[in-house]
Amino acid sequence: MGSVRTNRYSIVSSEEDGMKLATMAVANGFGNGKSKVHTRQQCRSRFVKKDGHCNVQFINVGEKGQRYLADIFTTCVDIRWRWMLVIFCLAFVLSWLFFGCVFWLIALLHGDLDTDYKDDDDKSKVSKACVSEVNSFTAAFLFSIETQTTIGYGFRCVTDECPIAVFMVVFQSIVGCIIDAFIIGAVMAKMAKPKKRNETLVFSHNAVIAMRDGKLCLMWRVGNLRKSHLVEAHVRAQLLKSRITSEGEYIPLDQIDINVGFDSGIDRIFLVSPITIVHEIDEDSPLYDLSKQDIDNADFEIVVILEGMVEATAMTTQCRSSYLANEILWGHRYEPVLFEEKHYYKVDYSRFHKTYEVPNTPLCSARDLAEKKYILSNANSFCYENEVALTSKEEEEDSENGVPESTSTDSPPGIDLHNQASVPLEPRPLRRESEIGSRR
C-alpha cells in the first residue's frame, strides 16, 4: 500500500517518465508532432483561472445545437444578457408577425380586404367582416399587437362572423401568456443567479507553507467582502497533476483530494472575517514527500473551492481559484488583518494578500521532518523571529508614515537576534492585533 500511495502522490514527473511517455506515443502511432509532453521546463496551462473560470474549450460535440435547444431554459439562463435581450425582442416580434399574417390571411380569404370602410357607412358590411377595420397587412399586424398586449384601442375587434378568427384570438392570448411567463422566468432566474456573489468572495493571491502546531501546513486565505453571511460555508481543495499509471496509461489531469478537515468538520467555516484555511501535510497528503526545492521545480495546480448558500436567496454559490506551484510561498505567513478595537473588531483588507517571511522554516519535506531528519529550532526562537518579522513590518510602515526611528523597538546594537533566540524570552503579545485562523 505504501508503494502504491507514493506512486499515486508523486508530484514532480521525472525525466524517465517523460521519455517513457514519448516512447509510448511513438510506439502507439501518436508521434505526429502534435502531442505535447509536459516536462519541468514546460509548465501546463492553468486549468482553473484565478477568477474561477475553467480554462476549457469543448470541440467536436455531436448534436450540440439539439442538446442546447432541448434544455432551452438553461440555455437562456446561461447566455449573455445581450443575447437574452435579442431573444426577448424576437420572441414578441415574431409572435406578433405570425398572428398578424394569420389574421391577414383570414381577412384575405373572407374577402374583407376588398371592402373600403372609410367611404361605406353600411354597418351590415362591417358585421360581415371577420375582424372589423382590418383591410391590410398593417392593420392585421396592429390588431395582433393589440390582442397579445391587451391594449385594446377599440377600432379593431373580432366579430362572430368567422369562428376561426375567434379561435385565433383565444389562441394568441394563451401563447402570449406562455411567452411572458417564459421570458420573465428566465430573466428573473438569470438575475437571481448567485454567480455575481463570487465577486465579493476573495482568495489570497498566494498560498503559503509554514509551520503550525509543530507541523508543516499548506495555507491559503479566504474572505467575504459583504456583511451578509454565506450560510453553510465549506471549503474543498484538489491537486491536479499528470501521472502515468503502473500499466503505462497517461492521465493528463489526475485529481487528488486535499484534506482540509472534512473528517473532523473544520472544513465548515464561519466566514465573517478572513480565515486562513489549513491543510496539514501528513502522510496522507500529496505534498508529504515534497521539499522546498521540489515545490520550486514541480508542475501541478491546486484548485480551491468555497461553497455556501447566499443568505438573501438561499441559492448555492461556488467560488473557485487555483494556485500553481510557483504561487506557493515556502516559509511565509499571512499578515494579520483582524484588529481588536474598543467595542468592535476591524478588518483591514489592505493586508489581505500580504505575507511575511518566517525565518528558520524547515526546507525539507514533511516526511523528513516526521522522521527527525531535520532538527527544528527552539520553539522560543521560532516565536521570537516570528515577532521580529512582524515588528520589522510595523517599523517599515512607521518610517513610511514619517514616525521617528527613535520610537521604534530596535534591538541594541551589536546583538545578533538569531543568537539571542536560544535565550528564554518573556511572551510578547501583539500590541493591538490578533489573527483569527482556522485551528486544527
Rank of each mutant, 00 (worst) to 15 (best):
Lys196Asp: 14
Glu433Gln: 12
Leu287Thr: 01
Val170Trp: 04
Val86Gln: 15
Thr147Pro: 01
Leu253Gly: 12
Pro359Trp: 02
Arg82Trp: 10
Asp368Thr: 08
Val304Asn: 02
Arg40Gly: 13
Leu21Trp: 08
Ala370Ser: 04
Val358Pro: 01
Leu324Ala: 14
Ile302Tyr: 00
Leu90Asn: 15
Arg197Asn: 13
Ile375Asp: 14
Gly33Asn: 12
Ala70Trp: 05
Lys50Met: 02
Leu425Asp: 15
Thr355Phe: 01
Glu280Trp: 14
Leu105Ala: 07
Ala27Phe: 05
Glu340Trp: 09
Lys36Trp: 04
Cys101Thr: 09
Thr149Glu: 05
Gly111Gln: 03
Cys89Ile: 14
His343Asp: 08
Thr115Val: 12
Lys34Glu: 15
Lys34Ala: 14
Pro427Gln: 04
Met188Asn: 12
Gly248Glu: 14
Asn28Thr: 12
Val86Ser: 15
Asn60Tyr: 05
Arg243Lys: 12
Ser381Gly: 12
Trp104Ala: 06
Thr23His: 10
Val134Arg: 00
His418Phe: 11
Pro252His: 15
Lys20Asp: 12
His353Ser: 10
Cys364Phe: 06
Met191Lys: 04
Arg268Pro: 05
Ala70Ser: 12
Ile277Tyr: 03
Asn419Val: 12
Ser422Trp: 09
Tyr345Leu: 15
Val56Glu: 06
Asp71His: 10
Leu329Ala: 05
Arg236Glu: 08
Gly33Asp: 14
Leu290Trp: 09
Pro336Glu: 14
Val208Ser: 00
Ala370Tyr: 05
Phe98Gln: 02
Gln172Leu: 02
Lys118Ala: 03
Asp263Trp: 07
Val37Leu: 10
Ile179Asp: 05
Gly176Cys: 02
Leu90Gln: 12
Val231Lys: 10
Ser322Met: 00
Lys346Ala: 06
Pro252Ser: 14
Ser285Val: 01
Gly2Val: 06
Ala233Gln: 07
Ser285Gly: 01
Ile328Leu: 06
Ser422His: 08
Ile275Pro: 04
Val170His: 02
Ser10Gln: 06
Ser246Met: 08
Ala210Ile: 05
Ser14Leu: 11
Val131Arg: 02
Arg82Gly: 09
Asp282Glu: 08
Val102Lys: 00
Pro336Ala: 15
His279Cys: 00
Arg221Val: 01
Gly154His: 07
Cys157His: 12
Gln42Tyr: 08
His279Leu: 02
Phe137Ile: 04
Glu435Arg: 08
Glu426Cys: 06
Lys342Pro: 11
Ser246Gln: 11
Asp119Gly: 00
Lys20Ser: 08
Val126Asp: 07
Glu327Gly: 01
Trp83Asn: 14
Ile251Ser: 14
Ala192Glu: 09
Ser14Lys: 09
Asp254Ser: 06
Asn360Leu: 05
Val102Asn: 03
Ile184Phe: 06
Val403Thr: 07
Val303Tyr: 06
Val202His: 09
Ser291Met: 02
Gly402Asp: 11
Phe155Arg: 07
Gly265Leu: 09
Lys34Met: 14
Ala91Lys: 09
Pro427Thr: 12
Val158Gln: 01
Ser321Tyr: 15
Arg432Ile: 15
Val56Cys: 13
Gly214Glu: 13
Glu280Arg: 13
Trp330Phe: 01
Leu90Trp: 05
Pro286Glu: 01
Arg40Tyr: 10
Asp122Tyr: 02
Tyr374Arg: 12
Asn60Lys: 08
Ile328Asp: 00
Gln41Val: 09
Asn135Asp: 09
Asn259Ala: 07
Ile266Asn: 10
Ile178Lys: 02
Ser322Gln: 00
Lys195Thr: 12
Ile174Cys: 06
Lys20Gly: 07
Gly18Asn: 08
Ser434Ala: 12
Asn326Ile: 02
Ala366Gln: 06
Ser264Pro: 04
Ser264Phe: 13
Ala233Met: 09
Thr276Arg: 02
Thr276Val: 13
Ile151Cys: 03
Ser204Thr: 08
Asn224Pro: 11
Asp267Phe: 07
Gly185Asp: 04
Val37Pro: 12
Asp116Ile: 15
Asp267Cys: 05
Phe352Trp: 06
Gln41Asp: 14
Asp263Gln: 10
Thr245His: 14
Glu199Cys: 12
His418Tyr: 09
Asp51Arg: 07
Gly111Phe: 02
Cys76Leu: 13
Tyr344Asp: 14
Leu390Val: 15
Val347Lys: 01
Ile305Ser: 12
Ser95Ile: 14
Ser228Val: 12
Val56Gly: 05
Val170Met: 04
Ser124Ile: 15
Asp254Phe: 06
Glu433Ile: 07
Asn326Thr: 13
Ala207Val: 01
Thr159Leu: 01
Leu287Ala: 00
Arg367Asp: 00
Ser422Ala: 13
Arg40Asn: 13
Gln66Ala: 08
Leu105Ser: 09
Asp78Cys: 11
Gln41Tyr: 07
Leu225Tyr: 10
Ser45Arg: 13
Glu395Met: 07
His234Cys: 10
Met24Ser: 12
Pro286Asn: 00
Phe352Val: 00
Val304Lys: 00
Asp180Leu: 14
Cys130Pro: 01
Asp116Phe: 15
Asp119Phe: 11
Lys241Asn: 10
Phe300Arg: 00
Glu357Asp: 08
Ala140Lys: 00
Thr245Met: 14
Val278Asp: 00
Ala192Ser: 06
Leu218Trp: 01
Phe155Ser: 09
Ala189Tyr: 13
Tyr384Cys: 12
Ala91Pro: 02
Lys354Leu: 13
Ser132Thr: 14
Leu417Lys: 07
Cys162Thr: 00
Glu307Cys: 11
Glu385Tyr: 03
Ile11Glu: 15
Ile178Asn: 03
